[in-house]
């Protein structure tokens, strides 16, 4: 049946679709490749007043370094500006955010999907409202208490804040994944004498991994990409990658510094690139998980 629909598509329509998709792919992906290529040039080539093709051919890069490619921007960013420190900080923050938010989110999401009482509906609505609050307004609320409690500036503070901000989303996503796991599974375990926690531990945990991995990816992306919280809550030496890149921009006057930011940005995009490559299916299923229920 479906094949007849496909056959009916005219050649012109297919061509039109294909052209449209090609244009879109250019718009979507070209900036990244252009910047990756340009990050190995000197600033005067990447930002060329004379001729835009300089960014491709790199004549001034060749003049200065004897080759059309140079890794000076990367050396400057990673070694001179100590970008590696931010990379370590980001790794730590991401690791702990993902672990913590999955642990408490799984428990909460499981409970929401298995309790038939009405308050679960209102808890989900409350989570939705919390999801709507812009993080920047929350940051305004954190600063004063954090100063007074001496919590400001440390990585663990950023971790718990990010976990909390991420919870509403995590709960919704895990809730919809747990809804898909048949309730009979843990009900029968309970009939056999398990407590609710034992049923969760021995019956649900072994089958929940696809949903948990997907949710974990989104927690990771949130922690990795955050700017609002990490820029305001972390001290300079504990900065993660994104605020660090933003801080490069403040000192753009001296030549080369813009290229540091370019190199650092490319360095920060590459892990995301790899992530999408390997987990494309999970990301797509995660994006649609909230939507399938309408």
């Amino acid at each position: 049946m479906a094949s007849s629909v496909v056959e009916n598509r005219s050649f012109g329509l297919r061509l039109g679709s294909a052209l449209f998709v090609i244009v879109w792919l250019l718009i979507a992906a070209f900036p990244f490749f252009w910047t990756l290529w340009g990050s190995f040039k000197v600033e005067l080539d990447f930002f060329s007043i004379l001729d835009w093709t300089d960014a491709l051919t790199g004549p001034r890069t060749e003049q200065v370094y004897g080759s059309t490619f140079t890794s000076t921007a990367y050396e400057g960013a990673w070694i001179q500006e100590e970008f590696w420190r931010s990379v370590i900080n980001t790794s730590l923050v991401c690791f702990f955010v993902v672990c913590t938010s999955l642990t408490i989110g799984t428990l909460g999401g499981y409970a929401l999907s298995r309790s038939g009482f009405r308050y679960t509906f209102w808890l989900l609505i409350a989570a939705l409202i919390f999801r709507a609050v812009p993080p920047m307004t929350l940051v305004a609320g954190y600063l004063l208490p954090f100063f007074e409690l001496n919590m400001w500036g440390h990585l663990p503070t950023a971790v718990i804040v990010l976990v909390a901000i991420n919870q509403p989303f995590t709960l919704w996503m895990l809730h919809s994944f747990f809804e898909k796991i048949p309730k009979d599974l843990d009900e029968s375990a309970k009939v056999d004498g398990c407590t609710q926690f034992q049923a969760f531990r021995h019956v649900i945990i072994p089958v929940m991994w696809p949903g948990v991995i997907t949710t974990g990816l989104f927690s990771f992306l949130l922690a990795y990409n955050d700017f609002a919280v990490t820029a305001m809550v972390l001290s300079k030496e504990n900065q993660t990658m994104i605020p660090k890149i933003a801080s490069f921009l403040g000192t753009t006057q001296t030549e080369g510094n813009v290229m540091f930011a370019v190199a650092a940005s490319v360095s920060a995009v590459i892990p995301l690139f790899i992530l999408v490559m390997f987990f494309q299916r999970q990301i797509v299923s995660g994006l649609t998980a909230g939507a399938v229920k309408g």
Partner: peptide, 29 residues
């Protein structure tokens, strides 16, 4: 699921949201 079991399962995430989302809203008020 009993209310009590639900409470213990849900407590950690509820605490996180209350302390770091609800309380800051009161704090800015």
């Amino acid at each position: 699921m009993k209310h009590k079991t639900f409470f213990w399962f849900f407590l950690p995430t509820a605490l996180a949201m209350l302390v770091f989302i609800a309380a800051p809203i009161l704090s800015i008020l």
